[in-house]
Amino acid sequence: MGFKLLSKLLVYLTASIMAIASPLAFSVDSSGEYPTVSEIPVGEVRLYQIADGVWSHIATQSFDGAVYPSNGLIVRDGDELLLIDTAWGAKNTAALLAEIEKQIGLPVTRAVSTHFHDDRVGGVDVLRAAGVATYASPSTRRLAEVEGNEIPTHSLEGLSSSGDAVRFGPVELFYPGAAHSTDNLIVYVPSASVLYGGCAIYELSRTSAGNVADADLAEWPTSIERIQQHYPEAQFVIPGHGLPGGLDLLKHTTNVVKAHTNRSVVE
């Protein structure tokens, strides 16, 4: 069995187990497998329904001669939608809004960016022009300005110390501490036991640490421990890039980060 097929099978099995364990909360999309990078042309966006009122959005972007996937989250909030992270750029984010209108038909009224990198804030200006209120932590807003990236308009308070959590509509926002970046936030959907790890969490097929220019490698494993301790009931975990899975993604990420750190020390 090929690795790609095995990865998709694991996603399907995880979703099936969740649907059985929580039949009222989960209505997993039966329309197909989780979209992969090879299936999404740059400039297009796919939506994948995880649970009743919960979707991931998947886009792709060219970077350094390669094409990478990027995940975000959409959560229903009454007759409105909360968006977590842009679709990595203005063109993708405009396509995301169009796809949401086509498939869901509810307005996106608020959006949260989970850290300051372009795959999370690139497209904020498109959201703002569409009347979406954009939010991020003060740290993310400051770092985005320093980096020359787009800056969300509103500040999220109460997320300055490791372990801080605040309720934001249908989700809980959690600051686990520094990891992929010093400002990275985690998003949890309690009604569906869905954990969105953003770039602080890796997919299972990833074996290298990737972009760690703004990471705190020493603190990252401790931050992941905080996530595990705060959300032990999480059933569906979405990484910032690639295929979702279960809580095993947290341990896998820790292993990859520690291996990278150990290699760096040896070198």
Rank of each mutant, 00 (worst) to 15 (best):
M1N: 04
G2E: 07
F3R: 04
K8Y: 07
L10Y: 09
L10S: 09
V11T: 08
L13S: 07
A15W: 15
A15G: 07
A15C: 08
A15N: 07
A21P: 11
P23A: 14
P23F: 13
P23R: 10
F26E: 11
V28T: 14
G32V: 09
Y34D: 14
Y34L: 09
T36Y: 12
G43E: 10
R46V: 13
Q49A: 12
I50H: 15
I50T: 13
D52P: 07
V54Q: 03
S56V: 12
S56K: 09
H57T: 06
I58F: 14
T60Y: 05
Q61L: 09
D64F: 14
G65Y: 06
V67I: 09
V67E: 12
P69R: 08
P69V: 08
S70F: 02
G72F: 03
L73I: 07
L73E: 02
I74E: 03
V75I: 14
V75P: 01
D77W: 10
D77S: 13
G78V: 11
G78Q: 08
G78Y: 10
D79G: 13
E80S: 08
L83S: 02
T86H: 00
W88Y: 01
A90V: 12
A90M: 12
T93S: 11
A94W: 12
A94Q: 14
A94L: 12
A94H: 09
A94N: 12
I100L: 09
K102L: 14
K102V: 11
I104L: 15
I104P: 00
V108K: 03
A111G: 14
V112D: 04
V112C: 03
F116M: 05
F116L: 03
H117T: 00
D118I: 15
D118L: 06
D118W: 07
D119S: 00
D119Q: 01
D119G: 02
R120Y: 01
G122P: 04
V126K: 13
L127V: 05
T134C: 11
R141W: 04
L143H: 13
L143W: 14
E145R: 12
V146T: 13
E147A: 14
G148H: 08
G148W: 07
T153F: 06
H154S: 13
H154Q: 15
S155P: 07
L156Y: 02
E157C: 15
L159D: 02
S160D: 13
S161L: 12
S161W: 14
D164N: 14
A165P: 08
F168H: 03
F174R: 03
Y175M: 11
P176S: 04
A178H: 08
H180C: 00
H180A: 01
S181Q: 00
S181Y: 03
N184H: 00
N184G: 06
I186Q: 00
V187L: 07
V189C: 01
P190M: 05
P190T: 05
P190Y: 04
S191L: 09
S191G: 08
A192K: 07
A192M: 11
S193K: 11
V194W: 00
V194C: 00
C199G: 02
C199V: 00
I201D: 03
Y202I: 06
E203W: 02
R206L: 08
T207E: 11
A209I: 06
G210P: 04
G210C: 04
A213G: 10
A213E: 13
A215F: 04
D216A: 11
D216E: 10
L217C: 05
A218W: 10
E219P: 04
E219M: 15
W220R: 02
T222M: 07
T222N: 06
T222H: 11
T222W: 10
I224V: 13
I224M: 13
I227F: 03
Q228R: 11
Q229D: 05
Q229T: 05
Y231K: 00
Q235Y: 06
G242Q: 01
L243P: 05
P244M: 07
G245I: 01
G246V: 05
L247A: 10
L249D: 00
L249R: 01
T253S: 13
T253A: 03
T254S: 13
N255Y: 15
V256H: 02
V256A: 06
V257L: 06
H260V: 10
T261S: 13
N262I: 06
R263F: 13
R263T: 09
S264L: 10
